[in-house]
Structure formats: C-alpha cells, structure tokens
Amino acid sequence: MAAGGDHGSPDSYRSPLASRYASPEMCFVFSDRYKFRTWRQLWLWLAEAEQTLGLPITDEQIQEMKSNLENIDFKMAAEEEKRLRHDVMAHVHTFGHCCPKAAGIIHLGATSCYVGDNTDLIILRNALDLLLPKLARVISRLADFAKERASLPTLGFTHFQPAQLTTVGKRCCLWIQDLCMDLQNLKRVRDDLRFRGVKGTTGTQASFLQLFEGDDHKVEQLDKMVTEKAGFKRAFIITGQTYTRKVDIEVLSVLASLGASVHKICTDIRLLANLKEMEEPFEKQQIGSSAMPYKRNPMRSERCCSLARHLMTLVMDPLQTASVQWFERTLDDSANRRICLAEAFLTADTILNTLQNISEGLVVYPKVIERRIRQELPFMATENIIMAMVKAGGSRQDCHEKIRVLSQQAASVVKQEGGDNDLIERIQVDAYFSPIHSQLDHLLDPSSFTGRASQQVQRFLEEEVYPLLKPYESVMKVKAELCL
C-alpha cells in the first residue's frame, strides 16, 4: 500500500493539533497551500530580480507567473513527485505547466533550498508574528487579574506546605514575570531571523556568478533584492546548502521555554482548584465526569500541561538535527523538520489560546482563602504575639514557653481530632496574655502579614508589564474561544 493518505478522510490519521486544537490561522501558515504558494512567490521574486539585473526574462513571463501564483494543481504535483521522487522539481514542473512561456526560467540558477529553506524562514517569521500578540493578550488578562487582587491576602506555599502570606495578585505576578520573559525572547528570536537568500547549491553562489558572467556586484544585488522582497532586513552571508540548523534550535528553545512557563502556571491553577481557592472557567453544560456528576475538573489547565510537556520535548529534535548536518548538509534534517517545526508552533498556539481562555474567566473564592488563612495564621502570628507581650512588660522566655504549650495543644486538636485551630481562643482565655487581649485582632490582621506584596504588584505592572504590552494595544480586544 502506498504511503500517505487522504487526510480529510475519517479513515486516515490526522494530527489532533490540526484537527482538534490549533487555530485556523496557525494551521494555514503550515498548510501545503501556504507552503507551495510561497515557493511560487519566491520563484517570481527571483525572476523579477534577475530581470532587473539584466537576464533575458520578459515582462510577459513575469506576468504569467504572477497570474498563476494561486493556480496550484495539487493532484498534478503529487503525481509528479511520485514520478520524480523530488518535491521541488515536482512543483517546478507543475508551475511550468500553467506558465508555459515562463517554464524555462522558473528556478533559474537556484537549488531546492532556495524555495525550501527560504519558505521555512518566512513561515517561522509569520508563525512567530501570530504567537506574539496571543502571548501579549494572556499577559494582559493576567495583569488585569493581578491588579484587581493585588491586596487580597492568601496563604503562600513553599514545598506545598503553608508559608508566609502573600497576595493573590502577587502570586499571579510570578506567572506574568515568566511570560514577559517569554514574550521578550519570542520577539528577540523573531527579529534575529535572517533570510537564507540566493546562495546556490553549497552556499557559494557559483551558479549565479556564472549567470551574471562573473559580476560579483550583481550577485550581491540579486541576494539583497530577493531578501528585501521577502520582507527581511538581512540575509546570511555564510550558508551551506541550507541555512544553519542552529536557527531551528533557537526558535524551538524559546517555544519550549514558553511551554515550561505555561505548565507551571496551569499546575498552580490545578492545585488551587483542589484547594477550592480558584477555578478555571466551567461552562453551564460542561460535564466533569461521566460517573461523578459533582466533579469540576480543571480540564483546560490539564490540557495545557499535557501539550506543554510535548512542546518542551520537541527542542531535542533540532538539537540532534543540527549535530548531524555533515559538511554542507545531509538530508537527516528533512523529514524531522517537516514534523517538529509545525508541531512546535501548533502546540504553542494551542496552549496560548487555551491559557487566554482560562485567564479571561478565572474565578476566585475569597471566603475559602480566608478560612485557610484562619487555619494557619495563628501559628504564624506567634512571633508577633511574643513581641507584643514583651512590649507590655512580659518575659520573652516565659511567653515563648506559654505559646509553645498552647500551640501544641491547638495542633493536637487540628491533627488528632480534625478540629479547627483554636490557638487564639486559648490565648484569649489565658490570664497571662490579658495585657494584649485587646491587640489580638490587630495582630491577626492578614494584611499585616503580606509585606509589600501589593506595592510590588503595582510597581511591576507599571514599570515592566504595561510598557512591554504597549506595541500590542491594537490587538488586545480579541477574545479566545474554545470549541473543545
């Protein structure tokens, strides 16, 4: 049975990233139509530049190519590739079939990587351009969430054990800070992308030097003109047959890092959902379990974690691919890159769409948070109580021993009897502590235990987050809708 299948058929496997999760716009960027249309555009740009620099290419040939950029006979191309065992030459023939007058000058002087690699770089750039505003929107939604809850005390956790208090907004800023680093890295790697350009079979530009009869300047002009037509500021000066596969490492490393950030955020949300302090959106008709109707599973956060793990592992592909590119190139890269580049971007696209949807509907339960604080705060307040007693004339050592005994009794009630923490009640009825009984409410005010959390939130948002989001103001209103 021949390899390949009808990918629109229910009898043929289709990647869930495309069929179930990723956005239509990201799927289109990695589609065959987008790819092969870009090949034709690159052939047109090459012909236009070659004509401008004096090669015998007519206006009629150029116009014929322009008129057929979208006229792609995919069936013919597939048949040609089956016959020739070469995808680029299959599309040269297919393009030439609908451009008979231009057929002889299509791909003039070029090698397969002229269309293959340059198209990949265009796709990487455009895919990054799709991700950047999506990530900015996630940051914006979380920034709104953090600002609104900047002063809401909550129990902090280290080692997932109760620690000092923080605020809900401050905790959210930990998430935002990681995503801001990801946004900066995505922008950097996007701006650092260079075009492969017009380089020939081993990167020496020998074929173009021959076409222009040894004119170095025209060869350099050709490279520059096509690079500018493709919208790049610069091209690699040095290439082998391909652009260095280190570029793929750079791009997928940034995406993998984004995956790590999203995994951490969504894990926190899942843990908070278990504590009943916070939940992701839950639709009115949504079913959490087929057997347990009360369940409210954090399905979206779980999906993000599941896909983020996949995204983090994909960076190993370009690392290994770059390491086995012998001399000017081997074909070890080809099949692998067809999979890992598309999957990385479709996965990143999915987790950003999902995280935006989550961040637009996060639900906080202040009463649950308050109750958990009441359970733990008495123990945390013991040092403040000791200091207040010393100020009232008591002995630190005597007070410490009193607190120690009462704390152990209260802990026994919590752990052995399943009761509430009654340390404060014990202190309130103990005559030894009568000098500070009137101060206990103040000493137990949760806001006095959150330090500068709310001020940190305000400063972080104003100095770091809002300036970073400013270039994306025009796209901030787009909502994230999930079908599944």
Rank of each mutant, 00 (worst) to 15 (best):
L131A: 15
G231Q: 10
A381F: 06
M387L: 11
T350L: 12
N274D: 10
N185P: 07
V219F: 04
G393E: 07
L377I: 13
T38M: 07
A143C: 07
I403S: 05
Q161T: 03
S301Y: 04
F236N: 06
L314A: 12
L331H: 00
D317F: 00
Q428K: 13
W43V: 00
C99R: 04
R300E: 05
S9G: 05
H310F: 07
R194K: 13
G393W: 05
P318N: 02
S151P: 10
D117T: 00
R296I: 08
S395T: 06
K147C: 10
H93Y: 08
L108R: 01
M89H: 00
A230V: 06
Y13V: 15
A90E: 01
N384D: 08
I436N: 05
K264P: 05
M26V: 07
K229S: 13
E302I: 01
P16K: 12
R83P: 09
Q439P: 04
S407Y: 02
P162H: 08
W175V: 04
E250R: 11
Q221M: 15
C180K: 06
F157L: 08
S407P: 00
V198F: 02
L69P: 07
L42T: 10
Q409R: 12
N384Q: 12
E280C: 05
T347R: 04
R309K: 07
L406Q: 07
D268A: 09
S454T: 14
C98V: 12
I339H: 13
Q241A: 00
N185M: 10
R33K: 13
Q456F: 04
L443E: 04
E425G: 11
F236I: 09
D32L: 14
N297M: 05
V457G: 03
V219A: 06
G109R: 00
T321Y: 09
Q184L: 12
R171N: 00
E328T: 00
M65K: 05
L108C: 15
I237A: 07
V363S: 03
A256Y: 03
E148H: 10
L121M: 10
P318W: 06
D59H: 09
H91S: 13
A136W: 06
P298V: 04
A235Q: 14
R459G: 13
I351H: 05
G419D: 09
L272W: 09
C266V: 11
R234E: 12
P10R: 15
Q397H: 07
I123E: 07
D182H: 00
V198W: 01
M380D: 00
I249S: 07
P162E: 05
S359L: 07
A348I: 11
E463T: 10
T382F: 03
L423M: 14
C27E: 12
A291H: 03
W326N: 05
T354L: 15
L319Q: 03
